[in-house]
Design a protein around this nucleic acid. Structure first.
Lengths: 182, 182
DNA sequence: AGATAAGCGAAGTGGCGACTTCGGATCCTA
DNA sequence: TAGGATCCGAAGTCGCCACTTCGCTTATCT
C-alpha cells in the first residue's frame, strides 16, 4: 500500500469520526470527503460502501474503549474502576452510538463491528466481575444489564445536548443502583 | 371536516405509529400510506411535511404518557407509583424515541412536540416530587436527571431488541439508585 | 335527487446522495 | 531518472423519496 493511500485512509477515518459525531450518522459521504480534504471517490475506494465506513469508525471507537477497560481491569480499586469505566463509556461514546443506530437500521450485521462489540463486552465483564468479587457491586447484575444501562446513558447523552451536571447526576444514580446494598 | 377525512387521518396516525415503530423513523412516507390503505397524497394533505407527521405521532405518544403520569400522581403509594411510571415509560416508549431522534436531527424544533414534552416533564415531576416528599426517593435527583435516565433506557430498549429480563433488570438498577438511601 | 364542494389516488417532478468512470498526477523501482 | 503501476478527483449515473398536480369520486346539504 502506498504511503499516500495510507495517509488518506487515516484522514478519512478521522474526518468520519468528526462528521458523524457532529451531524449524526446520516451525514453524507461527501461531507466526510470534504472534511478529509479528498474526493468522494477516494473515500469509496477505501470503504466500498457507506456501511463499511461507518463500521470502521465504530470499530475504532470500540477498540479505544476496550483498551481503556483492560487497563481498568488491572487497577487497584475495583469499585472506582467500575465507576470510571461507566463514566468513560458515557462521555466518550456519544458518536459511537449514533453510528451503531445506523448499523442497526440496516438489516445486515457487519461482522467486524459485531466482533468489536463482543470484545468490549468481555472487557467490561472483567471489570464488573472484579467489582462483584470484591463485594462492591451487587452480584445480581449481569454484563448484559450493565451494557444496556451504559448504552442507554450514552444514547441519551448523544441525543440531547444536556448540561453535564445532568448527565453526571444520572450516571451517579446508576452507579448507586449498581453498588452493593448498604 | 368530512367524516372520511377524519377517519383517514386516524388511520394514517395509527399506521405511522406502527411503521415508525418497526422500521424506524427513516421509513418512507409511502410505506405509511400503504399501511394505512391510502395514497401518499392523502398523507401529505393531512400532514404537509414528513416532520409534521412524525411530530403528530410523537405528540400522541407523549400525551398518552402524560395521562398515565397524572393518574399515578394521585395513586395512594408514591414509591411504587414512581416505579410504575418509569417502567411504563420505558416499555411503551420504544417508538417514541426513535421519532424524537429524527426530530432532533432536523434543525427545527417543532413547537407542538416541544409543548407535549414539557407537559410530560411536568407530569413526571409531580410523581417524582411526591415520592421525594414521602421520603422514598432520594431528594437530590431532579426531573431532568430522571428524564434523562428514562430516555436512555427507552432508547436502549428501542435500539437493541433485548430479552425483557435484561431491560427489567436495568430498570431495577435505576430504581434502586433512585430510592432513598437505606 | 341534484348540485357542489371537499376529498381522493395515480402519475408525475425535482433534488439529494450513494456509488462509478476515466484521464491525469504521484509514488516507487531499477 | 524513466517507466509502469498505483492512486487520485471531477464529472458523471442511477435510484429513492419527499412532495405536487389533476381528473375523478363521494359525502353533505337543500
Amino acid at each position: 500500500m502506498r504511503v499516500d493511500a495510507r495517509l488518506n485512509r487515516e484522514r478519512i477515518l478521522a474526518a468520519a469520526e468528526e462528521v458523524f459525531g457532529e451531524l449524526g450518522a446520516q451525514a453524507s459521504t461527501e461531507e466526510v470527503a470534504r472534511r478529509a480534504g479528498v474526493g468522494v471517490a477516494t473515500v469509496f475506494r477505501h470503504f466500498p460502501t457507506k456501511t463499511d465506513l461507518v463500521e470502521a469508525t465504530l470499530v475504532r471507537h470500540f477498540d479505544d474503549l476496550v483498551t481503556h477497560a483492560r487497563m481498568l481491569a488491572a487497577a487497584p480499586a475495583p469499585g472506582p474502576a467500575l465507576g470510571d469505566l461507566v463514566t468513560a463509556m458515557v462521555e466518550r461514546g456519544a458518536t459511537k452510538v449514533t453510528l451503531a443506530n445506523l448499523l442497526g437500521a440496516a438489516d445486515q450485521v457487519p461482522s467486524g463491528a459485531a466482533d468489536a462489540a463482543r470484545r468490549l463486552r468481555d472487557a467490561v465483564d472483567a471489570v464488573l466481575r472484579r467489582a462483584q468479587d470484591a463485594g462492591v457491586a451487587r452480584p445480581d447484575v449481569s454484563v448484559d444489564e450493565l451494557y444496556f444501562l451504559v448504552r442507554g446513558l450514552t444514547q441519551a447523552a448523544a441525543a440531547m445536548p444536556v448540561p453535564t451536571a445532568v448527565s453526571r447526576g444520572a450516571v451517579r444514580v446508576v452507579l448507586d443502583g449498581l453498588a452493593a446494598h448498604r
